[in-house]
Design a protein around this nucleic acid. Structure first.
Lengths: 261, 261
DNA sequence: CAGTGGTCTAGACCACTGG
DNA sequence: CAGTGGTCTAGACCACTGC
């Protein structure tokens, strides 16, 4: 670049601009947005390396430091992972370190290592029409196709979590009970590998409830046993909702762990 | 500084070093640590501005960019707040924007603005001897003095939260029921102003439980109403535990909200 | 207007990884 | 050893605040 301080107009001009750019946006934010678009478009798959900082700097005609700041933010949002000496990689739910990133239920005894992996039992996996409620949550229309999965997760043979998942039928066409049950590792890793859907962020609403007769039976507890009701909305890139999940957690041997800062 | 690339030895040497510095620590981390020490020592009070980046750079004999990176991390941890054009300020629980940062219970209807502030009723505020359990949590010895507070928080006249607080008697000498009840704004803001104790981080363990007779009466619910049990450990600087809190939350009109990323 | 934090660059060197 | 991310500097300019 000839000018010592490349105006952001350079980049802004190369992007479609709507209504005379009302808000100031620093260069590195624009770079971040461009990288984000490549991420969404699947230019690099989960687990793969993205181009080096120098390559991206050359591609976008900015300094390496600016690319660096853009990637810093993506790393802070868990969209990519930096590895010194190796490169920057698209984050994935498959990795050992971040497995069960979204599962906050922990054994009282301590860590998950000693507990071992959960046993999954899929009770149902069917294609249904979205209720008004589910449709609203998933940004669909009432009656649109939705995949509903009901399953139980057990730890050491003890049924601990009962959950229902609702997934947009469009994106998850062909999801089968065998697939849902047989997959090794996190369900979200299966979503990445089998359907190209990467969950990036989620929100949970938690309540204390009593189970109905069926729920109690499935979790092998009495109907007087209070349970955590965890309603989760999970989003892909751009805050597009891709999963509604309603879980019932037993908290007699486990607890929901949260860090506040 | 004469050398173009001031070795970190310069700074490290000025600090007491134990056992031949085994781990590499970048300069900005050392600067961060120094600022942190000033924060702990109360060199700047909550709400006050800390010295400008240029001043700190001059003080520590490093470039402004290095100070910047140190402050960036402190800001990411909510220990300071940056305000463009004004300065960098020691974070406080008094600020409107971050009030109730640690309270994740939200009204189902939406935001807290429409709901208005909580009404506090302090039922008890007494000096007791720490049980083994409380002592362990607060890093005290069994039998050490502890302040115990029991209170009810109501929203719109509806009792919603019943909680017990345990505080080290040493740091909270003289805490009275009037003080606990009468203070305007977050309790943690009162801790800052009256006792110079600033809570920086917390961990919560959440379960679903049924209340005993007394708890049910205080929250005006039946004993068959499931409640959220929220056990919180709050820490000051350096991960020193300063509060154990056990709360029971009604979740018929509220829910515990959590963001996962 | 001066002073603050925020952005951007260019270049040097360090720490880590793998061939 | 070359290539990656990580640190550090020095200097320029921008955006925002308040006097």
């Amino acid at each position: 670049m000839a000018t010592p301080h490349p105006s952001q107009a350079d980049l802004a001009a190369s992007e479609p601009t709507l209504a005379a750019t009302p808000a100031f946006s620093p260069l590195y934010q624009q770079i971040k947005e461009l990288i984000l678009q490549s991420l969404e478009a699947g230019e690099w798959k989960p687990g793969e390396a993205i181009p080096s900082e120098n390559e991206l700097a050359a591609r976008f005609r900015v300094s390496q430091g600016t690319v660096r700041k853009a990637i810093d933010e993506l790393a802070a949002e868990n969209l990519v992972i930096r590895r010194q000496g190796k490169g920057t990689f698209v984050a994935t739910h498959s990795e050992q370190q971040v497995r069960y990133r979204f599962l906050k239920l922990m054994p009282d005894s301590g860590d998950r290592e000693t507990e071992g992996p959960a046993q999954r039992t899929v009770l149902e996996c069917k294609r249904v029409r979205a209720s008004a409620e589910v449709a609203r949550a998933l940004a669909l229309r009432s009656g649109d196709a939705v995949i509903q999965v009901r399953r139980v997760l057990s730890f050491g043979g003890v049924p601990t979590i009962l959950e229902d998942l609702w997934l947009p039928g469009n994106a998850f066409k062909g999801l089968s009970a065998e697939q849902a049950e047989g997959w090794q590792g996190p369900t979200y890793a299966m979503f990445e590998n089998e359907f190209g859907v990467r969950m990036v962020r989620a929100e949970e609403k938690i309540r204390a409830v009593l189970p109905d007769a069926q729920q109690a039976a499935l979790l092998k507890v009495s109907q007087q046993t209070p349970l955590l009701s965890v309603e989760r909305m999970a989003f892909t890139y751009n805050d597009v909702p891709m999963e509604l999940r309603r879980g019932l957690y037993r908290t007699d041997t486990h607890h929901y762990r949260n860090e506040l800062s």
